[in-house]
Design a protein around this nucleic acid. Structure first.
Lengths: 186, 186
DNA sequence: CACGCGAGTAGACACTGTCTACGCAGGAAG
DNA sequence: CTTCCTGCGTAGACAGTGTCTACTCGCGTG
């Protein structure tokens, strides 16, 4: 009787497939197969393949958000090092969950009214804005936070792309992270 | 008798399709159809679909490289404003050639020994390292250049993703660019 | 008991990328 | 001149995909 809430099970199976076999394993039929249902079953809960993928990506945002709020929870720490922690978590997540990270920022998942993804990322962004505001009061927190986020995101992507290792001859990105924080938070 | 160098024509048709109809129009059969040949013809020149896509992406790198070298050609300008020009070109290219930019950084095009993509991007990176070295002698040019590139790349992606507009309530990214250059080049 | 309806099945359809066998030109060798 | 051979492109098959539609089956309500 493993017929409990197929919708949630499809998402869970999708996450597992994603982490185990990568993004190309996330075909609709493969997910259905792994969940033990026919290929038409998901349609009852997700109108399209993209909708299912978006639900899986949302799960990724949930995990990342959890890890980030955990990392910056300690308010006794100086804001600057909390930003540093946030950055480390972001980069670790991107490296540790490559497939998920790639899925989370796929362009085509935003087209079809898949609202919610941008919403969730906006939440994460708000945390960063708050920290920046505390670390450097006076400056435009949103601009600096946007710049830092872009920096983190770019580092994460270029590293996965392999460019940084080749260009900078090292796999160590902590100096990059420090350079970024130093540059923006003095 | 439009049978001149099918290989080059396939790439050209691919670029056209990419700019006109977006990345999802780049199926092997669609490219072959648009080129007026059968779906098996490309196989003579590209062992796999990914190889053809990689060739198209390489064309994009060529264009971007051209625009960048044009933008920083004037050596009488101060290095700092040349970096600014480079950044503008990078961001404009990403916005003006969305499909191409997305294709250029697709993860799966690097797997199958599609060497050359990383090589080309390394060239672009070298230009940036050179400029940074002139703008701020003394510091580690590769680290700063890597940070700037990551920053540019992140801004380009997050903007196309729509996050920046929502988070920062503006489509204007020039302040972000200036903030980045200011932060890293003092 | 009959009915309806929600949930999942099964098959069709058009499409994709890859593989293989085939045709067909044009030039080289005899 | 005829006979190969080889490069280039065609055409069909195959497994796999996402979407759509018709169907079945079980369960609760009337």
């Amino acid at each position: 009787m493993p017929e409990a809430d197929l919708r949630a099970r499809l998402v869970k199976v999708g996450v597992d497939l994603l982490t185990r076999d990568g993004p190309q394993a996330l075909s609709l039929r493969e997910i259905a197969r792994s969940a033990g249902v026919s290929h038409g079953a998901p349609r009852r809960y997700f109108p399209t393949h993209q909708a299912l993928l978006a639900a899986i990506a949302r799960e990724g945002y949930h995990q990342l958000g959890q890890q980030i709020t955990d990392a910056v929870r300690d308010e006794s720490e100086p804001a600057r090092s909390r930003v540093l922690q946030l950055g480390r978590v972001y980069l670790d997540f991107a490296r540790g969950n490559r497939g998920m990270f790639e899925l989370m920022f796929r362009h085509d998942l935003l087209q079809g009214n898949q609202i919610g993804l941008r919403e969730v990322s906006r939440q994460l962004f708000a945390v960063l804005v708050d920290l920046v505001g505390k670390a450097r009061p006076g400056v435009s927190a949103t601009v600096v936070a946007g710049a830092i986020w872009a920096n983190l995101h770019g580092v994460a992507l270029l590293r996965q792309w392999g460019s940084l290792e080749i260009a900078m001859q090292t796999t160590e990105i902590d100096p990059l992270l420090h350079a970024s924080i130093d540059a923006y938070l003095g």
